[in-house]
Simulated scan of single mutants.
Amino acid sequence: MASIKGGLPLRKTRIDPWKDEWEESYRNEKEKLKEVFKEELVDIFHIGSTSIPAIGFAKPIIDMLLACLHAKTLHRNDFRLWLL
């Protein structure tokens, strides 16, 4: 495995052609998160390269930003998020 100065290993990053299914994956995950956070949730945003079809390529990871009424909401639901 290749490494950079200091001996840290380099990770390979997979980049895929943009796919319509990423938007569907986002919607599915958004619904699961709405069930966890309920009334504490302000909004959920699809961010990152999978949210922008015009880019044409993206890392196949659905990035999401959650806005909650209180930061403690995320910590209170930490275990429930791991179960998703």
Rank of each mutant, 00 (worst) to 15 (best):
I52F: 10
G7I: 08
P9H: 14
R80N: 01
I52W: 11
S51M: 02
K30R: 13
G48R: 07
H46R: 05
L66F: 01
T73Q: 01
P17L: 13
L74H: 02
A71R: 02
D43Y: 15
D43F: 07
K19T: 06
L83D: 09
K19C: 04
L74M: 04
K12A: 06
S3C: 02
K34E: 12
L8A: 13
M64Y: 06
V36D: 04
F37P: 08
K59W: 02
D16N: 08
T50S: 09
L66W: 04
G48K: 08
P60I: 14
I15A: 05
K32G: 05
L74A: 00
T50N: 10
L65R: 11
I61F: 01
L65A: 15
M1D: 09
G6D: 10
F79N: 07
E39D: 12
E39G: 15
R14P: 01
E29A: 11
F57V: 08
E23Q: 15
V42I: 12
L74E: 00
R11G: 04
L74F: 14
T50D: 03
E24M: 05
I62V: 02
K19A: 07
R11L: 06
E24V: 15
N28A: 11
A67E: 11
I47L: 14
R14W: 03
E21P: 05
G6K: 10
L33I: 13
I62N: 03
T73K: 00
E35C: 13
K12N: 06
K12Q: 07
K32M: 07
S49W: 12
E35K: 10
Y26N: 13
I4W: 12
D20S: 11
G6A: 06
S51N: 09
E39P: 15
P53M: 11
R80M: 01
F57L: 03
H46M: 07
C68W: 08
I47M: 13
K72A: 00
E40D: 13
P17G: 11
G48D: 11
E39W: 10
R80F: 00
E21V: 14
L69D: 13
I61R: 05
R14T: 00
W22P: 02
A58F: 03
A2Y: 05
E35W: 12
K38T: 08
E35M: 15
K59H: 03
P9E: 14
G6L: 01
N77Q: 01
H70Y: 09
G6F: 03
E29W: 09
R27W: 03
I15P: 09
E29T: 01
V36T: 08
K34A: 10
K30P: 10
Y26E: 07
D16T: 13
E35D: 10
E29R: 13
F37S: 07
